[in-house]
Design a protein around this nucleic acid. Structure first.
Length: 919
DNA sequence: CAGTGAGCGAGCTTCCGCTTGACTT
């Protein structure tokens, strides 16, 4: 039976709209984008892999043609849509009416390829029955200019991300990333930290008085602060620069009180009679806040409910899917007509008509690049459920309540009242004329504040706070109950939190509602930033990355880059600019501006070593910080203290993981050299030597060592020993440590050669050593238990065979159709792989030992074979390798364990495989 | 950054934006 197929983006939306359209329509969703540039090498089709631009999947030399693929997890969904399309007599592409939505519609069209049926583009901005029916009646055509604008955005982001990230792999650390959005977000955090590092606190004093208005006053006691001394205003925090000195604008106009002066004044005012010099009353008026959009919801959920951006979004997602709220990824503050009515009727019911403005309030978008494909975030439906009526609990309840209150409040009247400033003056015993100032606020009509008060980030006073002052007339006499001197220091700018960083990004038009939460996730995952409480602290790694980007990609990492890009995209969407020429400007450059490609090609200019080095406490301090593979460390430098390679030959000291950069002062650095960081766990003194035994985390993982006395002979090295796999730093005992330090153990002498056979723990695990001949041991315990006889038995066997039997393949799959050889799955240094004895192919991300079939294995092997034995006689090596491979088995497991510990040791940063490789 | 002996499948990492389940505990 024929139907009209309508495709929207979200399944929840499809359900709702399906209900409105009724019979004759089938409403399905695309579940977001259905095609994209291939994300990784595994997803890149073989036919473009070999092209010079294959890695980018954009043919930069031929019109920046993108090569799209349907991601694996979308394939079945596409078949489902194709099936539905077979029985359809009309196709409605009803994705969002913004750049991305238009592109999704075009991708659907291009991928589904409907034949001989009309295709229409249907758009709507609110999900109500009349709006949907009207939209179905008034379809339009696909806007190809808008699609081109989206492609330009997509391709630019790909080129930026996939060209600049590899620069970081080469020059900073493997696995890092750069991008139009994340790099600027990281830069914001780094720049803020730099401001904090450069900040010098200024100290200033003032006077705090408690005044008595007399027994007849409506408010008797009230506080006031000193305002001026001899008509010069007393300096406050905002009069100082970040360098800790008075601003030019304040010079000559303020008096900067220090402690002696403030204390002298305070005591000279003890018996002073004050009179009211002026009373100034101003009306106070506050309008309600606009309904929530994604960023404001994230900020308020953070301030009021303590939710991270990602938690907020997933709770909101559940509320949306279950029909409690409208869509949560939006940059619009607009309410539909029905929503305004629903809010107004709840104002009337819950607060009374006096809280309801005569006309509905409307909120224009403050977001400059807003695309307004959705409504504001509000309770769903034409009438709002109060939180109590929803039956929700926990986080969902609290978030719903927040959204509900904000929405209702947005349709309430302004709050009004009065703010009053009273100035009191008197003469100090020492002769100065001193004026105090008190400010109060009284709210006479709370209006929307009755329903909702926005939170603050930095303890500023909230919109509903009140301070009452007495009714005083000019000239009235007032006495001071007490005057005390009060010391203050200016504070450095606060670090960003998730919520404030997101706000900053939105203000700068960077990122979109669907990505704000994940931007935070990206910079955390890369190890650029870590959280200390709610504050975002940049790692030194981020300083290194941002320095490289600032020096070599200044335009791309500028704060204005995205805003400028948005303007260009608008031009493309309006048909006034051309996609290809704009991309060419970005990638190849223009006459006066270098393009991205040129910058990347000039990579050789970047000195990775310099880029990772930061002087501490000025260039001549003799101490520098370096960002190393295992995290940041300090190094002493002297002018000529470098070897031929420019390596500093000085001392080194670790920097603790959680030491924020702005706390690493020169003094702190010197302290770290004295008391090397890295938790040292004291285990007690050694029963034989009496030396202190400690456990530490080192570059090869946890180990124990003994502390030599300061007067130890030069050249004596402390004994050390790695912890066994079964031990941990938290639980290790002195006995364990003593045993570890006793290694290597002499098992006995080889009767043939007379050489000692020793048992010791090494890089590849426990092993026996006799001269230069070594044999691995099966377990660490054997180090202590193995007897000479057993050791000799092990040595009696040839090296390889001893371990060959212990390494069977994980799975046998049958014979390869090409080579005819048996294909087996094995586990190796680099993970699981399949081999036919000649070629080896690593399993890809989506493969598993359990699920892999012979077909898939053959596919992987065929791919591998296609690349051929590219490297130095790989064929031979491969063969040889296979013969010996089994012997590598045991140690491989060990190695990957070492990898894990190295990773942990390498700070929270993402020291990828390279870390383990080097060690 | 604690110097610890073999011989050993390389290949991939990465962007931004639009959307949900699929996983396991």
């Amino acid at each position: 039976m024929a139907h009209k197929l309508v495709i929207v983006e979200s399944p929840a939306k499809a359900r709702t709209i399906g209900g409105y359209l009724g019979q004759g329509y089938v409403v399905e969703s695309s579940i977001g984008h259905i095609r994209d540039l291939p994300q990784s090498a595994a997803d890149t089709p073989a036919k473009i892999k070999d092209k010079p631009w294959g890695r980018l999947a954009v043919d930069v030399d031929n019109g920046f043609e993108p090569f799209y693929v349907v991601p694996r997890d979308k394939k079945s969904h596409i078949s489902k849509l194709k099936t539905l399309l077979k029985d359809a007599d009309e196709l409605y592409l009803a994705t969002d009416e913004d750049r991305e939505g238009e592109a999704i519609a075009w991708h659907l069209l291009d991928e589904l390829k409907p034949k001989n049926i009309p295709v229409r583009r249907m758009v709507f901005h609110e999900i109500t029955k009349p709006a949907i029916l009207a939209a179905a009646e008034n379809p339009r055509e696909l806007d190809m200019d808008l699609v081109e604008a989206q492609e330009a955005r997509r391709i630019l982001d790909r080129l930026y991300g996939y060209e600049v990230s590899p620069v970081l792999w080469k020059k900073v650390m493997s696995g890092l990333s750069a991008g139009r959005v994340q790099s600027v977000a990281t830069r914001l955090v780094v720049d803020r930290e730099k401001e904090r590092m450069a900040f010098k606190a200024a100290s200033y004093w003032d006077l705090e008085g408690s005044f008595d208005a007399g027994s007849g006053a409506d408010v008797r006691m009230f506080p006031a602060k000193v305002y001026s001394v001899d008509e010069l205003r007393v300096a406050r925090g905002s009069d100082f620069t970040d360098a800790g000195v008075l601003k030019d604008s304040a010079a000559g106009k303020v008096v900067h009180l220090d402690r002696p002066r403030a204390e002298a004044l305070a005591s000279a005012l003890a018996d002073t009679r004050f009179d009211v010099r002026s009373v100034e009353a101003k009306p106070y008026r506050r309008s309600p806040y606009a309904p929530f959009r994604t960023t404001t919801l994230q900020q308020e959920a953070s301030r009021k409910l303590g939710m991270s951006a990602s938690v907020t979004m997933s709770v909101a997602q559940r509320l949306y899917e279950n029909g409690f709220i409208t869509y949560m990824r939006t940059d619009s503050t607009t309410l539909s007509g029905g929503a305004v009515e629903a809010a107004r009727s709840q104002v009337r019911e819950l607060y009374g008509a006096e809280y309801l403005p005569d006309a509905p309030r409307t909120y224009a978008s403050k977001v400059k690049n807003a695309q307004e494909a959705h409504e504001a975030i509000r309770p769903a439906g034409e009438t709002f459920r109060t939180p109590g009526q929803t039956g929700l609990t926990g986080e969902q309840f609290r978030l719903y309540e927040l959204i509900w209150m904000r929405t209702v409040a947005s349709q309430m009247k302004d709050a009004t009242g009065q703010s009053v400033t009273i100035r009191l003056g008197g003469a100090a015993a020492t002769g100065e004329d001193v004026v105090f100032s008190a400010t109060g606020r009284v709210i006479t009509f709370h209006g929307f504040l009755k329903a909702y008060v926005e939170g603050t980030d930095d303890g500023k006073r909230s919109d509903d706070s009140e301070t009452r002052l007495p009714q005083l007339a000019e000239g009235a006499a007032v006495t001071a109950a007490s005057v005390t001197a009060d010391g203050h220091e200016t504070k450095p700018p606060a670090r960003y939190t998730e919520a404030t960083l997101i706000k900053e990004l939105e203000d700068r038009e960077i990122g979109r509602p669907s990505t704000y939460a994940s931007i935070i996730g990206t910079i955390l995952n890369r190890g650029y930033v870590y959280k200390k409480g709610t504050a975002l602290v940049p790692a030194w790694l981020a300083f290194s990355v941002i320095r490289l980007l600032e020096e070599h990609f200044p335009r791309q990492i500028s704060y204005e880059f995205t805003a400028v890009m948005e303007d260009v995209l608008d031009e493309i969407a309006g048909g006034r600019a051309d996609r290809n020429s704009e991309l060419a400007k970005f990638y190849f450059g223009t006459g006066d501006v270098e393009g991205l490609k040129t910058l990347v090609d000039e990579l050789g200019d970047i000195d990775a070593r310099d880029n990772a080095t930061f002087p501490i406490g000025g260039a001549d301090s003799g101490i520098q910080l370096r960002v190393g593979r295992y995290g940041p460390y300090l190094e002493t430098v002297s002018k000529d203290g470098e070897d031929d390679d420019g390596n500093a030959t000085g001392k080194r000291a670790n920097v603790p993981d959680d030491l924020p950069p702005d706390e690493l002062t020169l003094a702190k650095a010197e302290e770290l050299f004295k008391n090397p960081a890295g938790e040292e766990i004291e285990l007690g003194s050694h029963p034989d030597t009496g030396l202190q035994v400690v456990a530490k985390n080192g570059r090869f993982g946890p180990y124990v060592t003994e502390l030599l006395p300061d007067d130890a002979k030069k050249g004596t090295k402390p004994r050390t020993g790695s912890l066994f796999k079964s031990m941990s730093l938290d639980t290790i005992s002195l006995e364990d440590a003593v045993k570890l330090l006793s290694l290597p153990r002499v098992v006995g002498a080889d009767p043939e050669s007379g050489d000692d056979i020793t048992a010791q723990n090494g890089r590849y695990g426990p092993y026996l050593k006799k001269g230069t001949d070594s044999r691995s041991l099966a377990s660490e315990d054997q180090l202590f238990t193995i007897t000479l006889d057993e050791a000799l038995k092990i040595y009696a066997q040839p090296k390889q065979r001893g371990r060959a039997a212990a390494a069977p393949p994980l799975k046998e799959l049958g014979n390869d159709p090409v080579s005819g050889q048996p294909v087996v799955v094995k586990s190796g240094r680099f993970g699981e792989y399949v081999t036919d004895g000649e070629y080896n192919a690593t399993l890809r991300k989506d493969d598993s030992v359990e699920a892999i079939t012979l077909e898939r294995a053959a596919e992987l092997l065929a791919e591998r074979r296609e690349r051929g034995p590219a490297k130095k006689g790989a064929k031979k090596t491969a063969k040889k390798a296979t013969a010996k491979k089994a012997t590598a088995k045991k140690s491989t497991a060990k190695k990957s364990a070492a990898k894990t510990t190295a990773k942990k040791a390498a700070k929270k940063s993402t020291a990828k495989t390279s870390a383990a490789k080097k060690s």
